[in-house]
């Protein structure tokens, strides 16, 4: 079936409060497909643009390829034996899917936060230092400055400044997730991928992380997978709806969040958003 390449959202329909200057795209995805070993087609023919310094929400029912989509964007799919990616993903001028690029550099530019907070079993400080070491920041003073800076950025500094050398896993779930975000932004990424960052957190922690995401939007391009439609509506600028059709995850609706939520063109997407399907 022929894809309808969904156009980049027009600035004129942007929601209130959004700048009306021309939006740049941070990543462009063209005809992306992903097949796992055994022939299971996780994604087929996904094309979209991810707008720079905005939040793009990815929603859709379970198993429709949302996480797979994120993993394609920073080549974590490489870790899955037998998976095969087709199509093109561009990060500015870099072709992400090219076999010649340095994936470690790519993953520093495109960071990822997972559903379950995954701090390493090390101290809070070491968690961030370990990431920094990859960028050859070896100077102690510089390291300490960056650790403080990123922890302040995620609003964790005041909570942990007295126990930086304590185990990261003794933090609460929400704190752990913010530490993971701090660890990721210590690498100065351009894009942050977040895979249901709040779903394993309690409502209060979830709200704190959500506020954080909204603040981070000023500096980074965020792509957030979420099951929480209300959250997608609250925080995102653009929304993409994925759906399983013909045994493959596909993009069925994409546009400015307000438009998707109020006037989705695709009937499936519309009924999903209104809670009638999915």
């Amino acid at each position: 079936m022929r894809s309808n390449v969904l156009e980049f959202p027009d600035a004129s329909v942007a929601k209130v409060g959004q700048s009306s200057e021309r939006l740049n795209s941070a990543m462009t995805i063209e005809h992306l497909g992903l097949v796992y070993r055994g022939g299971h087609c996780a994604l087929a023919d996904v094309s979209m643009c991810i707008a720079e310094k905005q939040i793009t929400a990815i929603i859709g029912p379970s198993g429709c390829g949302k996480t797979s989509f994120l993993q394609c964007l920073n080549r974590l799919t490489d870790l899955i034996a037998g998976s095969e990616v087709t199509g093109r993903i561009c990060l500015e001028e870099t072709d992400v899917t090219s076999s010649t690029i340095d994936v470690t550099v790519l993953r520093r530019r495109v960071g990822m936060i997972f559903q379950k907070p995954n701090p390493f079993p090390l101290s809070i400080r070491r968690n961030i230092e370990l990431a920094l070491r990859e960028t050859n920041v070896l100077d102690k003073k510089e390291c300490a400055d960056i650790v403080e800076h990123v922890l302040r950025e995620v609003g964790l500094w005041d909570e942990v400044k007295d126990r930086l050398d304590g185990p990261a896993q003794s933090l609460s779930g929400g704190q752990q997730q913010r530490l993971c975000i701090a660890r990721a932004i210590a690498l100065k990424p351009q894009v942050l991928l977040l895979d249901e960052p709040c779903s394993s957190l309690d409502p209060v922690s979830s709200e704190i992380v959500e506020d954080l995401l909204f603040r981070l939007r000023e500096r980074y391009t965020l792509v957030v997978v979420t099951h929480n439609l209300a959250q997608a509506r609250r925080i995102s600028d653009n929304t993409a709806v994925f759906w399983t059709r013909d045994d493959a995850g596909r993009l069925i609706e994409f546009g400015p969040t307000q438009q998707v939520f109020e006037a989705a063109r695709d009937p499936l997407a519309a009924s999903y958003i209104q809670g009638r399907r999915g």
């Binding site: 974590l76 870790l79 790519l106 993953r107 960071g111 990822m112 995954n118 990431a131 990859e134």
Partner: peptide, 27 residues
């Protein structure tokens, strides 16, 4: 060793050798 460590390490741009050395081996 939990796969979250490996994935987390990979997502931070750590090479396979470094993930092995700093994450998997101690665990």
């Amino acid at each position: 060793v939990p796969s979250e460590y490996r994935l987390g390490g990979a997502a931070l741009g750590m090479s396979r050798t470094r993930r092995l050395l700093y994450l998997s081996f101690p665990a």
